[in-house]
Design a protein around this nucleic acid. Structure first.
Lengths: 202, 202
DNA sequence: AGATCGGTTGACTGACCAGTCAATCGCTAG
DNA sequence: CTAGCGATTGACTGGTCAGTCAACCGATCT
């Protein structure tokens, strides 16, 4: 039987297509690229994309869900730790910034084509996206109950401000509105958390 | 001569099409809607859209630029005033939130189809969008020089955090991830500025 | 009344592209 | 060696839609 070997080979081919799709989506955008662009980039025939995926949409869905679920797990894991909320937010911001550092193309695709494109794809994944806000909101809420954070700012709101700040910074990097200086990644984590937790006031 | 009358009538027709386009783009999204949807919504023939606009893109461009320029002017005007930076940020956040309150469909279109869709349209308007960040950054920079804001957070960064927080809140409202409670608009302005200026720490 | 001209109409065209499918390839087992 | 089967190929189809254009309308002027 060739099942074991085939399964591994099949997974590899699937991954090959997914990785090619990331590069193509990042370069040309989901709407603007053709399925043949993905096939060409992966070095496979057009039809093979449809052997591994039901549709062009499913390719993007897969990329998004793979990464987003990893992030949700990471946030949940952080929240189980017995540390200050500020440290938790640092860890979350750090995870997201590191995701970008590790694979900027993938993060660009997720942010530009899914998270920030709530009309088309975001709608499908709205629940998943909202889950992230809720997890962050829960971190804030507990910190308020524990007296670490002030209680006159709704946790949902704080979560939006925090996540929004991160996403805007990534978007700035993605489109070169914000310089990506060397060592800027660690600096970025610090600045985001510092701003949200301590504020701009002197 | 019918020039004066025609000019007024023409401007009215053009506006009719623009307003219809806002509703259609907000409801169906720019990519998903057809030009005939806009014509139908406006109650005019398909071809007339092309009498007033060179392309479907130009309709969206026009909507974006019209509103964005008003906002840039508003920010510039605010910055000329001799008030605390916190008050300036309040005025800016207020202006944006009020824009949403006044015409949620238009703001939805601008945010979802242009600002957050930096791949397709954003690219064209990147300079205009970046201008907003820069104006906000200038407000922060001056406040740092005056000693009102701390100086260890780069103004560009602070601007991204501030604008990102606002946009995320609007996006939350647009897609019902964030409840739009009554009186929530004024509350929102306060919370955004309070969070960014004073932080979540107790 | 007739001429003129710009606003208005909507059928049509050309291009594009997601998804299908029948044919082919090449690996594995018997 | 050969049969069988799943992986792989890429030409093709059907439908969609942005943008064009020739004809039409009706207001204004002479």
């Amino acid at each position: 039987m060739a099942t074991a070997r085939s399964a591994a080979a099949a997974a590899e081919k699937r991954r090959l297509i997914l990785d090619a799709a990331v590069r193509v989506f990042a370069r040309q955008g989901f709407h603007t690229c053709r399925v043949s662009d993905i096939a060409d980039e992966a070095g496979v025939a057009y039809g093979l994309v449809y052997h591994y995926f039901r549709s062009k949409d499913e390719v993007l869905d897969t990329l998004f869900l793979e990464r987003w679920n990893v992030m949700l797990d990471a946030i949940r894991e952080v929240d189980t730790q017995d540390i200050l909320a500020r440290k938790k937010l640092e860890a979350i911001a750090g995870f997201i910034v590191d995701s970008y550092r590790h694979d900027p193309d993938l993060m660009k695709v997720i942010i530009v084509e899914v998270t920030r494109a709530a009309n088309s794809f975001g709608q499908t994944h709205l629940a998943k996206i909202t889950e992230a806000y809720n997890l962050i909101g829960a971190v804030v809420e507990k910190a308020q109950a524990a007296g670490e954070f002030r209680s006159d700012i709704s946790p949902q709101f704080a979560a939006m401000a925090f996540y929004g700040a991160i996403e805007q910074v990534l978007t700035g990097w993605i489109f070169d509105s914000l310089p990506q200086s060397a060592g800027g990644f660690d600096e970025a984590k610090r600045l985001i958390v510092e701003t949200i937790c301590s504020g701009l006031d002197r």
